[in-house]
C-alpha cells in the first residue's frame, strides 16, 4: 500500500528527469580535468613523481623547452598532483571531461610547453621561475630576476660572503 501511494504520487508530480542538454551542475569540489599553467610551472617534476597511474610525464627539448604531458585516459582524478604542486601550476577544473569520438591517442592528451629563457648573466637556457617564487626564495633584487639557477646560487653565495667578510678584505682576497 505504501508503494502504491508512492507511485501514484509520482504520477501526479511532474517527472524528475532532466533533459540531456540540461544536466545537473557539477559540484564545485569536483575533481575534473587537469589544467596546467605553464607560466607558473617550474618543471620540478613533483606531479609526475606523485602520479600513481603515471598520467603525467615530462619531455624536454634541450635548450629550447620543457613539455608537460597529461593523458586523460590514464588519470584517476585523485588530485595528488594539484595538492603537491609547489607553485599551484596544476589545478583540477570543476567541469567533467566530455566524451570524445577520437582514439585514445589524441583528444585525450594535453600538452603544455614551458619555454626556456636565456640567463641574463651567463646566457644558459633555464626554466624561468614565477615571480612569487623568486621573491620567496631569493629576495627581490631586480637584477637577478633572469638568472639561471647556477648564477642565482653564485649571486647568493657572493651576497653571503659579503655579509661576513668586509668589502676591502674581499677585494684583497680576490
Amino acid at each position: 500500500m505504501a508503494m502504491l501511494k508512492t507511485i501514484l504520487g509520482n504520477l501526479l508530480r511532474p517527472p524528475r528527469t532532466r533533459d540531456p542538454a540540461d544536466m545537473p551542475e557539477v559540484p564545485p569540489v569536483y575533481r575534473g580535468a587537469l589544467a596546467h599553467d605553464a607560466a607558473r610551472c617550474t618543471a620540478c617534476g613533483t606531479c609526475a613523481f606523485v602520479c600513481a597511474p603515471k598520467a603525467i610525464t615530462f619531455t624536454q627539448e634541450p635548450g629550447v623547452s620543457v613539455s608537460w604531458h597529461f593523458f586523460i585516459g590514464q588519470c584517476s582524478f585523485c588530485g595528488l598532483c594539484a595538492q603537491n604542486c609547489p607553485t599551484r601550476a596544476i589545478s583540477l577544473q570543476a567541469d567533467a571531461p566530455g566524451a570524445t569520438n577520437s582514439a585514445a591517442g589524441d583528444g585525450l592528451r594535453l600538452e603544455s610547453v614551458i619555454r626556456l629563457q636565456p640567463c641574463t648573466r651567463c646566457g644558459a637556457a633555464h626554466v624561468p621561475l614565477p615571480d612569487a617564487t623568486i621573491e620567496a626564495l631569493w629576495g627581490v633584487e631586480e637584477a637577478e630576476r633572469g638568472y639561471c639557477p647556477e648564477c642565482r646560487r653564485r649571486a647568493a653565495s657572493e651576497k653571503l660572503r659579503a655579509a661576513f667578510v668586509p668589502a676591502e678584505e674581499a677585494h684583497h682576497d680576490r
Partner: peptide, 9 residues
Amino acid sequence: VARLQGRQG
C-alpha cells in the same frame, strides 16, 4: 511505468 517511477519515459 516511467511516470509511476517519476521518470520522463
